[in-house]
Design a protein around this nucleic acid. Structure first.
Lengths: 201, 201
DNA sequence: GCCGAAGTTGCCATGTGCGCAAGTTTTCCC
DNA sequence: GGGAAAACTTGCGCACATGGCAACTTCGGC
């Protein structure tokens, strides 16, 4: 007797569990030993799978470490897509960000610690940036929708809006991580978005 | 009898030559065989040094490939530093960019081809981004100078300006590479800078 | 010219990415 | 509920990359 909605199914659930286990193993090993002193083998071991299986899920350590960030980004992208179609691009972006960040009050301190760890390590900078780059593509696609069919999806305007939006979020996060006590992340980000978005509002 | 200026000296010149040889070997091999079908050994061979020596110059293939871009960025940074101290940050940024890009007329078609090759290849995206990230740090430092000692160099404003500036240049380049015939790169970039900079002008 | 510093090279250990070919488990359909 | 097909895991093995170490060579300064 199955529920009518498309259930994940055992196979899918197992895959998700393995992926999550690998991600979390990677994170806790990185916290314990430092991100550049961990091996794929150690991560796979800690997650209870073979080294070869790790490669079936992630291309490398960095991808496993940033899986969480990647998921958060996709959540934000989802909220963006759910905004009313007739909202202007910048309005939709700010609204989605507010929904996403201010809702969850302040950021989880454990998450903050992990993020700060990642930021400190230059060997992870590349992976960090790739997360943002991937997100930029998704955001740009949504901006293109809102600018109507006349907008060239590879044109400057669409991508400039997406890039500026993400730059504001990224820079705010860096600054907030440096001085966490002063205010909530969203307060910092909102101001940055207002400033950066003056050309698009 | 030596000239009073600090001459490079044979040693330095040799190093520079080797570095350049490695860079160019990497580029032409990448053009010929595709960027992910080349090995460090092949590059070192083509440049006439040992595989081990390659590692003394670059940490990996990507670094060798992007050495050129990196140098161009440093040139732009130099022009930025040479702008008058009392120019506002955004004015200095746009002026430096104009000086840099519009001076050289249109971009060298060979350079364009190489850049397009790099862009097409997702395995190089990470390295690409790192070039920009490194530049962002340099630009931010210069912006901090112009905002005066009151500005927090890790604060939002400084880094937001730097990030927006580079985002505009990057997005313009991508768009221009997609539709090269329409106008010069600088025309595209100038418009993007004007739009993005409305919040900082 | 001679000596110390800087640069090059080979050797080697450790790690990574991925193709292949068994084994296993889950799904699907009768 | 049973059996074939599809999906997933795993061990093995190979090509390549990264970087330490210790000779060896070249350069710069005196």
């Amino acid at each position: 007797m199955s529920v009518p909605t498309t259930e994940p199914g055992l196979r899918e659930r197992k895959k998700a569990a393995t992926r999550l286990a690998l991600h979390e193993a990677a994170l806790s090993l990185a916290l314990e030993h430092g991100p550049d002193r961990i091996t794929v083998e150690a991560i796979a071991d800690a997650a209870g799978v073979s080294r070869r299986t790790f490669s079936n899920y992630f291309a490398n350590k960095e991808e496993a470490l940033f899986y969480g960030q990647h998921q958060r980004m996709r959540e934000l992208a989802g909220m963006l897509r759910a905004r009313p179609r007739d909202e202007s691009p910048w309005a939709a972006l700010t609204a989605a960000a507010e929904q996403f960040y201010s809702a969850q009050g302040d950021l989880d301190p454990e998450w903050t610690a992990r993020t700060r760890l990642m930021r400190r390590h230059p060997s992870l900078a590349a992976a960090q940036m790739q997360t943002f780059a991937a997100m930029e593509r998704e955001v740009a696609a949504e901006v293109a929708v809102r600018l109507g069919p006349a907008a060239d999806p590879s044109g400057v305007r669409v991508n400039l809006i997406a890039a500026t939006f993400l730059a504001a979020l990224r820079v705010s996060l860096t600054a907030w991580l440096a001085h966490p006590a002063d205010s909530t992340y969203w307060e910092v980000a909102a101001e940055a978005l207002a400033e950066a978005g003056r050309g698009f509002a």
